Computed example of a mutant assay.
Amino acid sequence: MLSVTTGALVTGGIIVTVATGNASVPDVVCPGSTVTLSGEAGPPAASSGTFPVGTKLKVTNLDNGQATTVTVNGPSGSCVLLNNAAFDKVREPGKNLIRRARVERVGGGAAPAATAGASGAAGPSGATAPSGAAGGQAPPATGEVVCPGSTVTLSGEAGPPAASSGTFPVGTKLKVTNLDNGQATTVTVNGPSGSCVLLNNAAFDKVREPGKNLIRRARVERVG
């Protein structure tokens, strides 16, 4: 059984550590990941493409010191994707993205096979290993389908249409199609995030359904 204790003070606050036998090692996971808002209702919870259902994760916003502990209740394309109630506990006003987050596994589930600083380990072609079934969607119109099973979320950031990614380098062009309404947009990756593809406000508006900040049935294609 894992026993949770507090560790030494470090930059950003106290790390929770997990004692295993005689050794005590930090259980900070998904280093470098951003944390985003799914826009989904319900009691505080998270979805994840890295950890199984039942895993408990502590998410700390290092910019305001606020933290929440949530249980993973389903899959997504991020290390951790918070629903509305959970995100409200740690958010800064007007922001749908936490760029400086600390994610700690504090119970349940199992450690990921590899933590690559994003939502999955990159394969030879640069695509992440699938976090869920692709759902038998229609074949792509163009390009290579990547990140099968990933959800696509909204960063809340301004500027012309663009995306950030934890899988593809800056300059990669990705075509994102919302399979629920047929709308598509092609964007260029301009920075890192904890998702396969995280759209800014302008890009998400091109493919969104009214009132939704999450696309559960998305097709992501690398086109350049």
Rank of each mutant, 00 (worst) to 15 (best):
S3Q: 10
S3E: 14
T5L: 14
T5I: 15
T6M: 10
L9P: 11
L9I: 10
V10N: 08
T11Y: 10
T11G: 14
G13T: 03
I14Y: 10
I15G: 03
I15Y: 11
V18P: 00
S24K: 15
S24N: 13
P26L: 07
D27P: 04
V28E: 07
V29H: 06
C30S: 07
G32N: 08
G32S: 09
G32Y: 07
T34W: 00
T34P: 01
V35E: 08
V35R: 01
T36K: 02
T36P: 00
L37W: 13
S38P: 13
G39Y: 07
E40Q: 14
P44Q: 01
A45W: 06
A46C: 13
S48A: 08
T50R: 14
T50W: 04
F51L: 09
P52A: 08
T55M: 09
K56H: 13
T60I: 12
D63N: 15
A67D: 08
T69S: 14
T69G: 06
V70Y: 06
N73M: 02
G74L: 08
S76D: 13
G77V: 07
G77I: 05
C79I: 03
N83G: 07
N84F: 01
N84H: 08
F87L: 01
D88N: 15
D88R: 12
P93K: 00
K95F: 11
N96T: 14
L97H: 09
I98K: 04
R99L: 11
R100Q: 15
R102Y: 07
R102G: 13
V103F: 00
V103T: 14
G108T: 12
P112K: 10
A113E: 13
A114F: 13
A116Q: 12
A116P: 13
A118C: 10
A118H: 05
G120H: 01
P124D: 12
T128Y: 01
A129N: 04
A129M: 06
P130R: 02
S131P: 07
S131V: 15
G132H: 03
A134E: 04
P139S: 12
P140V: 11
P140T: 06
A141M: 04
T142S: 14
T142L: 09
V145T: 12
V145R: 15
C147K: 00
P148Y: 01
P148E: 09
V152N: 08
T153L: 06
T153H: 02
E157F: 09
G159Y: 03
G159M: 03
P160S: 05
P160F: 10
A162Y: 02
A162M: 05
G166K: 01
G166S: 09
G166I: 03
T167N: 06
T167A: 10
T167I: 03
P169Q: 07
V170Y: 02
G171K: 05
T172D: 05
T172A: 12
T172W: 02
L174H: 08
V176A: 02
T177W: 00
T177C: 00
L179M: 12
G182I: 09
A184V: 09
V187K: 01
V189H: 05
S193I: 07
G194C: 11
G194A: 11
S195T: 07
S195H: 12
L198W: 05
L198N: 12
N201E: 11
F204L: 09
D205M: 03
D205T: 05
N213S: 14
L214P: 11
I215R: 00
R216Q: 12
R216K: 10
R217S: 07
A218M: 03
R219I: 01
E221T: 03
E221D: 06
V223T: 14
G224W: 00
G224P: 04
